[in-house]
């Protein structure tokens, strides 16, 4: 793609998200979402093979529908209540519609079906943008409207997302689809706690972005798209293979890694709010996700690609990929747990 055009597209991608962040009016927020969708479409379709085009079409249809629903809900609110402010969204019809539309935009459980298919058709860098940066603007809106949404709807959506995210990923062999289901499960955790501690939602969104970027960048470095090809990662870069297993376990939320922190705090907050059943169900469904993370770890670190040679190292050429972001973000994805006391202090401020 022409670098000038790419510059315009990327800056519009930023502009859309920032417009949505900065707006207090539904119309401007909707405009930001639309700019975001329009800007990423040619980036998604730049390979222009049938799968990329198909993924782009599906993404466009869902995002346009969700944005239209958001504007419709705010118009309904203006007709019934007379308010256009994002904070003033108060009519139950409008809040429920907005929640459903944002769920469609993010890919939460009852309306998540587009996310694995779309992510499967993209290359890894675009998939990284799609599953991190594109989640920010809807989440900014969701956090602002969260106090007026029916709480049982939120909890049902959150639990269903964690369940579907774990369950759907079990039978997959494609890494991008597995990452899509992992994204659904993580979003479910964020929505679960949305009404009780919005700061925890932000924290868990932040950590999700770090861990997912680390996973995507690793896959890009290894150039692997299915579980089979993960087996070659040991010969390509042993350090990366060992660390990636830890990153995947961090995505699963095992204790000494930073992925444990949001799950820990969310479970604690849920039990404190008198929702032990929801907390138990969420923790159980996290085990489903853990299964496929463990399978990835197994394929990556404990298996060797079938090879007739005894050599384990490939030809050593100069590595041309820039790996500084990968190393920084992997360290962040592994070692943030000791910061938990500081984070909890900051959250209670």
């Amino acid at each position: 793609m022409n670098p000038y055009v790419l510059t315009i597209l990327l800056s519009s991608l930023g502009l859309g998200t920032i417009l949505t962040f900065a707006s207090s009016h539904w119309l401007l927020a909707w405009m930001g979402l639309e700019i975001n969708t329009l800007a990423i479409i040619p980036i998604m379709a730049q390979q222009s093979h049938p799968r990329a085009i198909e993924a782009t079409t599906k993404y466009f249809l869902t995002q346009a529908t969700a944005a239209a629903m958001i504007l419709f809900a705010s118009t309904t609110n203006a007709w019934l209540v007379g308010e256009w402010e994002i904070h003033q969204l108060s009519h139950p019809l409008a809040t429920t519609t907005v929640m459903l539309a944002l769920a469609l935009k993010l890919g939460l459980a009852p309306v998540h079906f587009w996310l694995p298919e779309v992510l499967q058709g993209l290359e890894l860098t675009t998939g990284l943008i799609l599953s991190t940066w594109q989640k920010l603007a809807p989440f900014a809106l969701m956090i602002q409207v969260a106090p007026t949404i029916n709480s049982s709807l939120l909890i049902a959506m959150g639990l269903l997302s964690t369940l579907v995210g774990g369950w759907g990923g079990l039978n997959q062999t494609q890494l991008r689809k597995i990452l899509a289901y992992s994204s659904i499960a993580h979003l479910g955790w964020m929505v679960l706690i949305l009404q009780y501690a919005p700061s925890l939602t932000l924290l868990s969104l932040f950590l999700y972005i770090i861990m997912t970027s680390s996973a995507f960048l690793t896959l890009k470095t290894n150039n692997s798209l299915t579980i089979n090809t993960l087996a070659t990662s040991w010969t390509k870069s042993p350090t990366l293979a060992a660390l990636t297993a830890l990153v995947l376990l961090s995505l699963g939320g095992l204790p000494p890694l930073s992925g444990f922190m949001p799950k820990w705090l969310i479970l604690q907050e849920l039990t404190k709010q008198g929702l032990p059943l929801s907390a138990t169900l969420a923790a159980m469904t996290a085990l489903l996700s853990l299964y496929f993370y463990l399978r990835l770890c197994y394929a990556m670190t404990l298996t060797i690609y079938p090879n007739t040679l005894t050599a384990t190292a490939p030809w050593r050429l100069n590595f041309t990929l820039i790996t500084l972001p990968l190393s920084i973000i992997t360290i962040l994805a592994l070692g943030l747990l000791p910061l938990t006391p500081a984070v909890t202090t900051l959250l209670t401020l």
Binding site: V5, L9, S12, L19, E34, I35, L38, A39, P42, A45
Partner: peptide, 19 residues
């Protein structure tokens, strides 16, 4: 808002051309 609209129309031009 007029400037934002003009920007998005320009953006759409590039989107359509690229697609």
């Amino acid at each position: 808002m007029l400037i934002v609209c003009a920007w998005v129309l320009l953006l759409t031009l590039f989107v359509v051309l690229e697609l």
